[in-house]
């Protein structure tokens, strides 16, 4: 046996894995400990990522360079807007936080609109316009996709009552949606099982076996 031969990292990793898996028996203090630790550390990790990957290259470093001759004073504007978000905690000037929010939301929705139309609606529609008269099995499958997209869109069109022809087409849309949900479900289950196998593989190969020197 050589437990000390393993790094502390592997031990922590293994014990936390077991703490989470203990929930399969029932809710218990070990699981709740690991769950709380996960929540706190995830947020801390996000803070680190935002600091290193967003604030450092876009604000801290360029503002620091300002002292060495590169005049990046314009960056003080987004910094001021960022600080203004916190005015919501001061009742007398809380309305000023709306200005920062308005600039952020306004720009975001403007970008979002172009991204959605230009990056999703147009390309997805273009890709749906496929040949169906070329013969062969591919033309048939293209027809399946065209019918699927059309019927799903009809199902999501709520401005007309789903009766008669519209009702029938939207029912076909539901079938396509059911296939998609089933496929997504199956795919998700397999991905989760793959993660589970990864954790068991870690416990056996990186923790238990080295502990017994095999």
């Amino acid at each position: 046996m050589q437990p000390l031969g393993l790094s502390i990292g592997v031990w922590v990793n293994a014990l936390l894995t077991l703490c989470i898996l203990s929930f399969l028996y029932k809710d218990n203090p070990f699981f709740r400990f690991a769950e709380s630790l996960f929540a706190g550390m995830s947020l801390g990790y996000y803070i680190g990522i935002v600091t290193v990957q967003t604030l450092q290259p876009n604000l801290i470093r360029p503002l620091g360079e300002t002292f060495f001759g590169n005049h990046n004073y314009l960056l003080l504007i987004p910094m001021a807007l960022g600080i203004m978000l916190y005015f919501r905690y001061i009742p007398r000037i809380s309305w000023l936080s709306r200005i920062a929010l308005a600039v952020y939301i306004g720009y975001y929705v403007g970008v979002l609109m172009m991204q959605k139309i230009h990056g999703q609606v147009i390309p997805q529609t273009r890709d749906t316009i496929m040949p169906v008269t070329t013969g062969g099995i591919d033309a048939l499958w293209n027809l399946v996709v065209i019918i699927g997209v059309f019927s799903v869109l009809v199902y999501f069109y709520f401005s007309v009552e789903h009766k008669g022809v519209v009702g029938k087409v939207s029912r076909v849309g539901i079938w396509f949606l059911m296939i998609s949900f089933g496929a997504s479900f199956g795919y998700t289950i397999m991905a989760r099982i793959s993660l589970l196998m990864g954790r068991f593989s870690f416990l056996v190969n990186n923790w238990i076996r080295p502990m017994f020197g095999s």
């Binding site: 979002l112 609109m113 499958w141 999501f156 396509f176 496929a183």
Partner: peptide
């Protein structure tokens, strides 16, 4: 085949519908 044909068709319908919804919401906000 399921992933690439019927599933892709339904996903495409969902994407187009959601994108149109998001775009119209953007117009409302602007």
């Amino acid at each position: 085949w399921i992933m690439n044909r019927p599933n892709a068709a339904a996903q495409r319908g969902i994407i187009i519908g959601a994108a149109l919804g998001a775009a119209s919401m953007s117009i409302r906000v602007i």
